[in-house]
């Protein structure tokens, strides 16, 4: 236990007051229209003068605000690398596809990561894979060659997604902070379960699943893949014997309930950080909680924009951290 994070955690505690609770989310869902939702968000302090009335700009601004606060806390951005891996590997995937297909759409990249879209494009274009972080090099080269020679975009995705999961898991194993280990374990396990469910629905082979699934302690990927070949009931049966039994129930309910459970599982993993005063845990939990909040608001706004009924939106809404 260290006093290093005392100031930062206390500041985060004060900031947690502004996080949306489940009742605030209920109020947002109860708004009559998309425009009223935006007005509600603005009244809650979301966005700024420049983003008024533009949902995507408001959500982007909120994400930027979160990272600005984290930078101000001066706790070392390296602790948050594990949270940016999915965006970083997404940039790699997008860059490889852009270079191989010569379709230069610059709006598919994330810029708030250590290697921006522009830099990633340059690396892939010059095949300078050695300048990538070590955990990306091999996957980048393999995915690039695969897409170039086979034109199989899905296989390219699988290679990079698997590398992203392995990177998250390795970062978790190496991390001193318990929350990063728990987050990595939950993220990889939930991703493996998602792969199994989607593979079952699209009748993928055992080889495909083995290639896509990343090893982790709480899930036996062999058994999960075999269960996926046996059908949805077999997946549920397998999950009932693991610590992800609630996922089995969500699978039974509906696909959107399962997706919701996947995100809720991460929030449940970070929940104990509400009672921790001396580690970096609450700061990481706050960032994850903000990301979950922004994602939930995006789901609600999208539902409102497409005139989905309230119940249908509610089914997709994630559990809040506070």
């Amino acid at each position: 236990m260290s006093e290093k994070y005392t100031y930062a955690v206390a500041r985060i505690r004060a900031l947690e007051l502004a996080l949306f609770s489940n009742s605030t989310i209920d109020q947002l869902i109860a708004c009559g229209s998309y425009e009223q939702c935006l007005q509600f968000l603005e009244e809650k302090g979301w966005g700024d003068n420049e983003t008024s009335g533009n949902a995507e700009a408001i959500l982007t601004r909120e994400e930027e605000k979160t990272w600005k606060i984290v930078e101000e806390l001066k706790v070392g951005m390296e602790h948050f690398d594990v949270l940016s891996y999915s965006k970083l590997f997404h940039n790699l995937k997008a860059a490889i596809k852009a270079v191989c297909t010569e379709d230069m759409n610059r709006h598919v990249f994330y810029d708030d990561v250590s290697i921006s879209g522009e830099e990633m494009l340059e690396i892939v274009r010059t095949k300078d894979f050695q300048s990538l972080p070590e955990n990306m090099r091999q996957a980048a080269e393999e995915a690039y060659d695969t897409l170039l020679h086979t034109g199989d975009g899905q296989l390219c995705d699988v290679i990079i997604d698997r590398a992203a999961l392995d990177a998250i898991y390795d970062a978790g194993k190496k991390a001193k902070a318990e929350i990063i280990r728990d987050y990595a374990e939950s993220t990889v396990a939930v991703a493996d379960i998602k792969i199994a469910v989607r593979s079952q629905k699209t009748a993928k082979s055992m080889d495909f699943m083995k290639r896509a699934m990343a090893e982790c302690d709480s899930i036996d990927t062999d058994r999960l893949a075999k269960a996926a070949l046996g059908g949805m009931d077999a997946i549920r049966e397998y999950l009932l014997g693991t610590s992800y039994a609630e996922g089995a129930e969500a699978l039974l309910e509906s696909p959107s309930a399962f997706e919701r459970w996947c995100d809720n599982r991460i929030i449940q993993t970070i929940s104990p950080q509400k009672y921790n005063a001396f580690t970096i845990g609450p700061i990481i939990a706050y960032v994850l909680a903000r990301q979950n909040e922004i994602k939930t608001v995006r789901i609600i706004l999208s539902g409102k924009l497409n005139d989905l009924p309230e119940d249908s939106i509610r089914e997709r809404v994630r559990e809040m951290y506070v």
Binding site: E3, T6, Y7, A8, V9, A10, R11, R13, A14, A277
Partner: peptide, 17 residues
């Protein structure tokens, strides 16, 4: 000292406390 660090964190966001 340690309580002061925490107090500063809270006052940064909410001086009324």
């Amino acid at each position: 000292g340690v309580a002061g660090q925490a107090a500063s964190g809270v006052v940064t966001e909410d001086p009324s406390k």
